[in-house]
């Protein structure tokens, strides 16, 4: 299941269905910068000539985003939270071939 990691509930709404928020622990975030290796970059470059989906990059960004989310969750757990609400994502291209993925949200305690 991609939605519950280490017992922490992650949502991008302001409330959680069936739960009451009792404590606000502030903003938590996690980010990662990743680049593909040269070999797969060349293949993706070739695929780019033909157009369509670049599967290697889809997978790369998916993995990186999972890492950013798990870092955010580690941050929340360190503060003693059991849920992260109102999660947002930001993506930016730092240099050619490398992307920064950033996930942030509010750590809360729910009952």
């Amino acid at each position: 299941m991609q939605h519950i990691v280490g017992g922490v509930i992650v949502v991008n709404t302001e409330t959680i269905a069936g739960k009451v928020i009792t404590k606000n622990l502030g903003v938590v975030g996690g980010s990662t910068v990743r680049a593909k290796n040269v070999g797969r970059d060349i293949f993706a470059g070739l695929k780019n000539i033909v157009g369509g989906e670049l599967t290697a990059y889809t997978e790369l960004l998916d993995e990186s985003r999972n890492q950013a989310i798990s870092r955010m969750i580690a941050d929340a757990t360190a503060r003693g939270a059991n849920a992260v609400i109102n999660v947002r994502f930001a993506t930016s291209a730092v240099t050619a071939g490398a992307s920064e993925l950033f996930a942030y949200g509010t750590a809360v305690v729910v009952e």
Partner: peptide, 27 residues
């Protein structure tokens, strides 16, 4: 919709999907 508009929700969690899509050099 930003909030749960129904009161009978029992569970919730994040769901996400991505795709990298590009035009061909011809396009």
């Amino acid at each position: 919709i930003r909030k749960e508009y129904r009161q009978d929700g029992i569970d919730s969690g994040l769901v996400y999907a991505n795709v990298v899509y590009g035009p061909s050099y011809w396009h």
